[in-house]
Design a binder for these strands. Sequence first.
DNA 1: CATGAATGAGCCTTCATTCAT
DNA 2: CATGAATGAAGGCTCATTCAT
Lengths: 223, 223, 223, 223
Amino acid sequence: MLVDGGHPRRREPGIVTDVADRSGDKTRQVDRFDQRRAQLAMSALVTLSELGYARTSLREIAQNSEFSHGVLHYYFRNKAELITYCVKQYKAECVTRYDRMVETAETAEELKTAFGAATAATLRENARLHRLWYDLRNQSLFEKLFQAEVLAIDETLELMIWRVVSRYAELLGKPADFAPSTTYALFDGLFQQGLLKHLAGREDAARCLQDSVEQVLARLFTT
Amino acid sequence: MLVDGGHPRRREPGIVTDVADRSGDKTRQVDRFDQRRAQLAMSALVTLSELGYARTSLREIAQNSEFSHGVLHYYFRNKAELITYCVKQYKAECVTRYDRMVETAETAEELKTAFGAATAATLRENARLHRLWYDLRNQSLFEKLFQAEVLAIDETLELMIWRVVSRYAELLGKPADFAPSTTYALFDGLFQQGLLKHLAGREDAARCLQDSVEQVLARLFTT
Amino acid sequence: MLVDGGHPRRREPGIVTDVADRSGDKTRQVDRFDQRRAQLAMSALVTLSELGYARTSLREIAQNSEFSHGVLHYYFRNKAELITYCVKQYKAECVTRYDRMVETAETAEELKTAFGAATAATLRENARLHRLWYDLRNQSLFEKLFQAEVLAIDETLELMIWRVVSRYAELLGKPADFAPSTTYALFDGLFQQGLLKHLAGREDAARCLQDSVEQVLARLFTT
Amino acid sequence: MLVDGGHPRRREPGIVTDVADRSGDKTRQVDRFDQRRAQLAMSALVTLSELGYARTSLREIAQNSEFSHGVLHYYFRNKAELITYCVKQYKAECVTRYDRMVETAETAEELKTAFGAATAATLRENARLHRLWYDLRNQSLFEKLFQAEVLAIDETLELMIWRVVSRYAELLGKPADFAPSTTYALFDGLFQQGLLKHLAGREDAARCLQDSVEQVLARLFTT
DNA sequence: CATGAATGAGCCTTCATTCAT
DNA sequence: CATGAATGAAGGCTCATTCAT
């Protein structure tokens, strides 16, 4: 658990983000506080995804942004909190994208193809951001500090995958044979290997990933 | 131009430049050099697997061993070479262990059970070392330096898994439906999720892993 | 690609990006940055001129000052930048001093005497600082890094000497027979030998230098 | 002064080098000791002249030679003694070469041309070795340890130059107007500037040096 | 609110030197 | 004689964090 170090303005963030237009001063302040955090996180993602957690200094992040060095410490307790916030923010976006896909597809075949394509696309387009996620998850293996957050994100992803698979099952008219966690593990394994190869420069990494994702998705169900 | 800055280390350790099978001085010396490296690596693994690559300093490694700080630099070009050596050494052992298992099993069912059990066992017993491997693999996403070595180790592991699956196919009398790389990715995904949960303190992580490994192995083949 | 590793230092110190003549914040800040640099350089010169470039550590410099070790790294990219800055700053002063001398002298004889005296005086009084300059120039023979800066300083000195000689020629009513670079080389040779002897403890080094400088200056012109 | 650190075999070198074939064991041993030193020094010159004193480690020297690292410490008290020995050995050769030139020339004009040519030639061909000499001389400004040796070498060079100039005077039938030390300082200044420019890549450095050397030589005498 | 100056612990690496063999 | 393993001090540099303004 994080201990509040007594920062004058620090508060548990995220509490009021959904309330748009309240007139209380306090509320507005909190809103601005969170807006600032989001803004900083967005900016930090550039550097962070480029260099990874361990190799990124807060100074570097500041330099590659329009913000000062000190402001990062003002809005985030420390580096750990910053990266967690960043990744969480990014992963939330990801989930949304997949969910739209699920809603759009009308046949099992269509969903399977869309899923494979989306996976390959994000591998190609967001390789760096995914790599940052894996970096954070890896950190969590060593620093208890990250564990809770990472586990939470991972669960979100597991659910996302599960929504895809459930929907596929529904369209197919068969129940899936694997547990959500197992299912997620399988696709995550595929994706990570794909990322490894993609970043190693293998041109066909994304295509291969697409194929294997489709193949595996189909095989989750007894023929 | 002068080369290499004059580090005392032998350039290609382990390769005996003389006649291969002689009890001469050279050979013995090279052996001692390599023995020392192995010894240091073994010692380093303790600290390394405890803290991870980025958080471990060579000083700390030395402190946790009976050697001086300088000796690490004497035997390894740098931190990167040390960790690579360590992980490679450890993973080579792993592979051997799995291969023995493959040779021992006499029926498909037996192999499947043995595979699941071995996976679960190593998750329980060597969690830290596995975590170190994933740490290194993760580094390689950011530092080209590690890439080649990591890819090589990964390939070794893929082959190891493939030997298991091939043997299973043989005993089963059916060909596997998945490519070696896909197969490896799946089991690796399972294992990594298992590790994540195990290190997060979930008591059932190993057991769940065992089950899902067996389930997935069976499902690699068309019923 | 990300640039520069995020060092806090301003990229082009001393160049006010805004309007030149304003009392605004930016300007004042830049000034303070440069003031600090100058202050640190001044402080560093003590240690540096005592021990020379290679034998001086930044830690030592810091210890002999009122600043912390880290502050040196904050204001200078690295050791090389620091020493270059120091020497450049010092040499600029030197040049000013000589130039004043040139302006003051009213006859050729007077200038010759003043030149000899000034040379001898600075040998006596600033031996250590001159030795530091030669040290830096010597480094530049091995490290390309310093080359440009050293060449630039050397050129400044050449011009300075040339201003003396030109003025002498003017007062004498004769043109000098030697090229500026040759002229500089001659006086530099004299000075360096003088320094060598002075630092070796020869009491008459400065006096000898004074004599030979005057003798050579006269001989630059056809009788 | 160097203190004998009690090395079992160390003795003041050079004592018996001129006696070629004596039968005493001791003598032969000393001879071999010195031969070894010369051999090591020759080998060390390569690395030393490439990197300079401060940047060269004994390890590097050993690596770039056929000798072991330890042997350097066996034959030389320390790095300082090694470099001094090296440079002294090299400079002795230089002197010989110039002296041959003096003997060969038959007219003043011829000698002047030969001197200019020889200076330019050695600038071109032995730039690195000269740079090493200047490096050592520079060290001596900071380390008293080197002072005596450097002063001795410098004196040798001064005498060498003086032999050239004396001979020139003789052939010319006029006495030189400058003292030996001044004369040496002038040519040394020219040479050092030439070296600076040559190593900075200026193609015409040697040619310019040749011209100015001849010009200055002529101007040493009243017309 | 925001800045960026300043700190000092800590890291990787280099190296002269010692010494057992 | 010669080797090269081992040491440990020292150096340049990075960085999260603190804090005065």
